[in-house]
Every structure is written in C-alpha cells, then in structure tokens.
Amino acid sequence: MTRELPVGSLIGSDLPAPAHVLAPRLNRHTFWCGQSGSGKTYALGVLLEQVLLHTRLPLVILDPNSDFVRLGEVRQGVAADAAAELASRDIRVFRPGDAVRPLHARFLQLPLRSRAALMQIDPLVDFDEYNTMLRFEDEMPHVKDGDLVAHLRAGEGTIRQRLATRLENLGVADWDLWAWGKRSITDDIDERPDAAVLDLGGFSTQAEARAAALAALDHLWEKREERIGRLIVIDEAHNLCPPDPASPVDRLLTERIVQIAAEGRKYGLWLLLSTQRPTKVHPNALSQCDNLALMRMSSPRDLDDLAEVFGYAPMSLLERSPGFAQGQALFAGGFVQAPALVQMGERLAQEGGRDVPVPLR
C-alpha cells in the first residue's frame, strides 16, 4: 500500500530527492493556488493522477475551463506500467451535449431551495409562489415526460400559471442540462467511479454551469450519511465560492461549499479548492483548509492573507513565492511531513486546456 504519492522533487536538497504528498492526509481540505502562468492547473493534474494510481479515493471534479477532460488519456512516452494503470481506471467525463456521457441533472430532484433559486423565487418576497412550490412536492413524481411547464399549465390556480410563465420567461425548463427522465450525473456519482469530471465549461450560459455544480454538490451533501470518502475538486473556486455572491444560485453554491468545508470532513467530503486569487474565495471556506499548495504568487495582499490564514506555512518560504519558476510550489500542512519547496513532476495524462501560442511568421 502506497501512503506517499510522488509529485516531483524537492528544491534545495543537497542530493536529488523525491517530493511526496501523504495520501491518508487528503482527508482534510486542501487549498491549491497560484497566479496565471504559474503552472497551477498542470501541477494539480500531477497530484490527481497520483491519487488515481495509488488510492481508491473517488474524485468528483468541477471543471469550469475543461482542463481535466482528458484525464484518462495517457500521453505518449509514459512508462508502460504507469500508462496501463491509469488507463485501467474508471474515469468518466461528462460534457453538455455529449452523445455518450451528456452532463445531465434532474431538475425535480433538486432541493426545493435550489429549484426556487434557479427560478429567482425568494421564499419571503415571493411567498405565494414559494408556498405553491412547497405544496407541489407530492406531485413531482406525476410530471409526465419531464414537461413541467405543461403539467403546471394543466393545473388550476393563477399561481401555478405564474410559475409556468416564469419558467418559460427564464428559459430554465429548456436548458440542455436537465435529464427529463434520462440518466443524471448523480446516478454516476453514486456508482463511485475513480473520477467523475463535470465539464462545466461546455455550457452556453454561466447559469447552467452553476446549476450543474449545485446539483452535484447538493446530491453529495444529501448522501453525506453514507460516509463515503470523496475528494471534491473545485477548479477556479473563486467562480463558485466568492466572498460576495450576487445571484440566488451563487449564494446557494457558496453556502453549500462553506457548509462542506465546515462540516463535511467527518462525512468523508473533502474539498480541494484551486484558484488564482485567494482573496476571491470565501474566507469561511479558505480558513477550513489544513493543506496548502502555493505556486508563484506576486500579489503582496494575497501573500499577507495566506500568511494569516495558513499559519503553519513558514513566512520565509511564503516570501519566496513571487520568485518561483513555473511548476515550483510550496507544500505545507498535514499532507506533507514538513513544509517544503517542490518542483512538480511530469503529467501522465493529456492536458485538457493549454495556453494559446503567439503565431509566428
């Protein structure tokens, strides 16, 4: 059994020495950050590949930029044994509109608060509409062919008609996200594949991407009493867990992530939050992270905030962050034996997203 995950080599050691992350300590929340161009996403891929190779910990990856959609595609030149191991893992990638694995969720199985937020219904301001939705719960199994608008139109009462009109005006019922009787992402999550990658970047609207993320996180929280260990990777976490969420859906998403950060560890729901800007992530989620991976970060404000939140990271090492080369990182917290500077290793799988090169004549 491999307890140590190889992620690269130590910087500053007299002799070449491998750098490791302690697999058992991924049962704490992890914060992964680095400014644009630092190699943050590539480095995160290195860790996730090692988790896939050496643990049975299921990954649920919320991927807003389609960076991990090729996680199961092995690169040329990778050692045959590692390539075979990675290729044998059950890695499922879900994309909007995909013919094989479309990213679908069930609108009617979302919690009431989430459905109301998607319809921009406030329980106190729009109390009649919300109350009608509350009393509609018993009817949901009887909606035919997923045609919620038609079901509401067929009923009596002006409020039901207003709900149908609201759905039509917002276009929510027509989103490609909804399964309407087909397989949902939650069905796959319950089967515990080695990795479930949700390609949120494939949606045409930000609202659908947020709804897909909310559906997955709501489901994981509702199933928390099963106490199945999972690593929930949220890339570009500032988009889903900002300190000042604006829309009702953004507020619910932030609330759910903060709730998982505060209470999820004992249920086996472990977050890995990745971002370019620590100050753009809700502080109540940030402060719950016991592991830190810091790549190049030039902003003095961000470094000051990191020093305040992550007191276990030596200031002498934090201060070196602005000078890190691409692919270099500071690892601190419970998932390493001691704080260390690391040169990240090579990826095994293909990168999903790359920088666009400057065209030369």
Rank of each mutant, 00 (worst) to 15 (best):
S9Y: 14
L10A: 06
I11S: 15
I11L: 07
R25I: 05
T30P: 02
A43Q: 01
G45L: 05
G45H: 04
V46C: 07
L53M: 06
L53D: 07
L62F: 13
N65D: 08
D67N: 09
F68K: 07
R70Q: 05
E73K: 02
D81I: 01
V93K: 01
F94R: 03
Q120F: 09
L124R: 13
N131G: 14
R135E: 12
M140F: 13
P141K: 01
V143W: 03
G146E: 00
L152H: 04
A154R: 15
I159Y: 01
R160I: 05
N169W: 13
L170R: 05
W180K: 14
S184E: 07
A195F: 06
D199Q: 14
T205I: 07
Q206F: 09
R210G: 06
R210Y: 02
R210C: 00
A212N: 03
L217V: 07
E222T: 13
K223T: 08
E226P: 11
I228Y: 10
R230V: 05
V233L: 08
H238M: 11
H238V: 02
H238K: 12
C241H: 00
C241I: 01
D250N: 12
D250Y: 11
Q259G: 15
Q259N: 10
I260S: 11
K266E: 04
G268E: 03
T275Y: 08
R277I: 13
P283W: 03
D290W: 11
D290R: 15
R296A: 06
R296L: 00
S298I: 02
R301P: 00
E308Q: 08
R320T: 08
P322N: 08
E346P: 13
V356F: 10
V356H: 09
